[in-house]
Design a protein around this nucleic acid. Structure first.
Lengths: 124, 124
DNA sequence: CGTCTAACCAACCAATCGGTTGAATACGAG
DNA sequence: CTCGTATTCAACCGATTGGTTGGTTAGACG
């Protein structure tokens, strides 16, 4: 239980080889040997990478004789963007609030607006 | 030079503590001690986490006397979503292409459409 | 000056990671 | 049954990680 789903997903994509694998699987499903061909690391290493991606829920595997075709699973990607976008949006909103305060301070011909901004800050 | 910008960013967010730090920094800037308070790990450990986030470009630090307030930098988050969304979109498009083929096969009253789909696949 | 606080650097430790090699499993073909 | 192919398992290695503790720098304050 070292990490939750999100931790495993981010950790999985932290490796360039694994990101490349995801990029190629986005185009088409493929077997381990096919995926391993372009890299100059052993097939076992690629198999390990795929296991990491599988444990992260990014990849599923089916059975076709002795082949194990890999298939990209997109929903975890959605989970990741959801997490990231939430906080990106929050910082953005914080910027806009700051801009509003600065604008009201700049043209301090309207002391009521400035005071409202202060109240807003204190309320949080 | 173990990893590029993207690798460092994903690796940084692979840790739950670091994700929590990002979540809190999205709300407001904070100093190391303020950030460390809620966790039951040492301040040094939190400082290390912040250094990881800083190396990943997710956090910048300014100077205020002996304080080092941390500030969330949103552009790397954009870079990550850009990467993720690219491949999520690609898989989605692949699904739609497959659906189109299946639909044309189902009602095979239109052999031209089926053949077009085959040509599309061979063209890649 | 000395002292307190905020933060960092350095050394260390157990655990994990990315890679290797070698052996084992699973399956199709002859 | 035997052979070849595809894949995984197991053990090992060097590097990194997340955490600790102890000492050090930087700056505010008496």
């Amino acid at each position: 239980m070292a990490g939750d789903r999100l931790s495993r997903a981010f950790a999985a994509l932290a490796d360039p080889t694994r990101r490349d694998l995801v990029g190629r699987l986005a185009v088409a499903d493929a077997t381990v040997n096919e995926l391993a061909a372009p890299y100059d690391i052993s097939v076992q290493a690629v198999s390990k990478h795929l296991k990491v991606l599988e444990d992260a829920g990014l990849v599923t595997r089916s059975r076709d004789a002795q082949r194990r075709p890999c298939h990209l699973q997109a929903d975890v990607l959605d989970l990741m963007t959801a997490w990231i976008e939430r906080y990106r949006r929050e910082t953005e909103e914080r910027y806009q609030r700051l801009d509003a305060v600065l604008a009201s301070l700049d043209s301090d011909s309207d002391p009521a607006a400035t005071e409202a901004a202060h109240e807003d800050g204190a309320a949080s």
